[in-house]
Design a protein around this nucleic acid. Structure first.
Length: 270
DNA sequence: TGTGTCACCTGAGCGC
DNA sequence: TGCGCTCAGGTGACAC
């Protein structure tokens, strides 16, 4: 499931090929994938050129000519790729064709992913991006900033790490890995967190490792080139219930925090 | 206003 | 072998 490192991996792979490309044709196979509506996309997109591919949190931001911005959110199973993904062609939701004959496929098994097209001056408000918190990779996150953002919050630290209005880009896998790196249990009350320095460093460190490994493939994620990520080979806790902790050898425990399957080491995390 | 819960959606895994 | 159930999870909508 794509989180910040997986989205960054897609951008790194797609940007060189797509920058400067001009849209020629759009084919939408699932109307519910597109916002505000298919008609606007079909009418506005042809003839527009891609100026830049960037990211904020888990959103892919495609800046276009003509005062337009296309935003893609992969949600759970979305894939953006220049070629159809083997074995997933029946889940293709949209196909973009460029004037140079290249194509861009949006594949999404569960139909959770979204493609937005809005005028550049208000796309952030229309996509929900305006509410996003700090991006730990693009903007960095200091202990002071993190502490201030958590100051008035209640609930578990994992719940707050998953809250995109506090820190943008963290999902279930990296939330567990960050808690492990910081040595805190995911169910710890957020106001009982003492070491914000270690927590903020863990956020950046875990996400950077994920990016360096081209993301984490648990079940569905593949990069734009159709290749799986490698970060699943380096996870400390996520998906390792009953296995030995890499640090102390204790068995990794699975529980449920913030409504999500949650893994931690009962010895290393307090 | 902040927090918790549910729906969306499909495939994998499991028990019978 | 086939059926039905449960689980997985990011986000928006809704209830409290």
């Amino acid at each position: 499931m794509p989180e910040l490192p997986e989205v960054q991996t897609v951008i790194n792979e797609l940007a060189p090929a797509l920058k400067g490309a001009k849209f020629w044709k759009v084919e939408v196979k699932n109307e519910n994938t597109v916002r505000p509506d298919v008609g606007f996309l079909m009418h506005e997109l042809p003839g527009k050129r891609i100026e830049a591919l960037t990211r904020k949190g888990k959103y892919i931001v495609i800046s276009l000519t003509g005062n337009l911005t296309m935003v893609v959110h992969l949600r759970m199973t979305g894939i953006l790729s220049p070629k159809p993904i083997k074995g997933k062609t029946k889940h293709i939701r949209a196909i973009f064709t460029f004037t140079n004959a290249k194509k861009l496929y949006f594949t999404d098994m569960r139909k959770f992913g979204k493609i937005y097209l809005f005028r550049t001056d208000h796309y952030e408000a229309m996509t929900g991006m305006a509410k996003l918190g700090v991006d730990p990779i693009e903007e960095g996150i200091s202990a002071e900033v993190l502490k201030a953002r958590l100051a008035s919050k209640k609930g578990t630290i994992k719940g707050k790490l998953l809250d995109q209005t506090i820190v943008a880009g963290i999902g279930n896998i990296y939330a567990d890995e960050i808690c492990f790196c910081a040595g805190v249990r995911p169910e710890t009350e957020v106001q009982k967190i003492k070491n914000h320095q270690k927590l903020s460093k863990s956020i950046v460190q875990c996400l950077e490792i994920g990016i360096a490994n081209n993301g984490t493939t648990i079940s569905d994620f593949v990069g734009a080139n159709g290749q799986s990520g490698r970060n699943q080979d380096y996870l400390n806790v996520y998906g390792r219930e009953g296995e030995a902790c890499h640090v102390c050898g204790s068995k990794i425990v699975k529980t449920r925090v913030a409504g999500r399957g949650t893994y931690y080491c009962p010895t290393c995390q307090h």
